[in-house]
Design a protein around this nucleic acid. Structure first.
Lengths: 120, 120
DNA sequence: CTGGATCCTTATGGATACTG
DNA sequence: CAGTATCCATAAGGATCCAG
């Protein structure tokens, strides 16, 4: 009977998918910024503190590939490129925000425990 | 008026805290395994597919330091060490599972979009 | 059984310069 | 403006050996 093991593997797969989507430093911050609505490349870079041009590009490419973000180019001079959350991307907002809310609710507890652990 | 910027920074801080807690490959899997109840080091290593001894140790140390996991040693030969989720750790389960549920609900959509993006 | 120490390879990401 | 390309430093992580 390998049903239990297979079920566990399935769960693991989902978890790893989540991490592949938003488990890096920038994806969640970019998605969070895009909550404000469609934005241009430059707006995003100014909005997400500390992100480099390179990482913004890589992050947007990944989010686009995974279907969370939509990229629209308007051929003009100077060029204008807008990024917006897709329906799929917006559907991710709920679960993510509940996690953020958890962090808000427990930040003091975490910080407290961490310092207490360093100096018992 | 810098209130908006400060609020955004606060949100960013929470997001980065989440990533520091569970944004790595193994933390979520270990937490997921600990849902089954308190377990020994060896059980965890067998339960979390592919984790090395080193990474299990490091992950558990981090989770312990952040107050998500409790470590109890029973002096004996051979030594026995049990790990269990703390109350704080269990409170994280809800938000995390809603995220997992999201991945379950949209896995087909994600896979489909990904392959479609590779071959347009 | 639990887990620390070391070596070594790869992945990540910042800085910078250049292009349509 | 919106990238692409390159170089380089650091971090992450696997394999292995050793010890209480």
């Amino acid at each position: 009977m390998a049903a239990a093991g297979e079920a566990q593997d399935a769960v693991d797969w989902e978890v790893l998918q989540i991490l592949a989507l938003v488990g890096d430093k920038w994806s969640l911050l970019v998605i969070g910024k895009l909550r404000d609505g469609p934005q241009r490349f430059g707006e995003l870079q100014r909005g997400v503190r500390g992100i480099s041009q390179r990482m913004l590009t890589l992050t947007l490419r990944k989010l686009e590939r995974d279907g969370l973000v939509n990229r629209t180019v308007q051929a003009a001079v100077p060029p204008r490129v807008d990024y917006r959350l897709t329906v799929l991307g917006e559907s991710l907002l709920g679960p993510v925000l509940s996690l953020v809310q958890w962090a808000v609710d427990h930040r003091d507890e975490i910080v407290e425990h961490r310092s207490h652990h360093d100096r018992p």
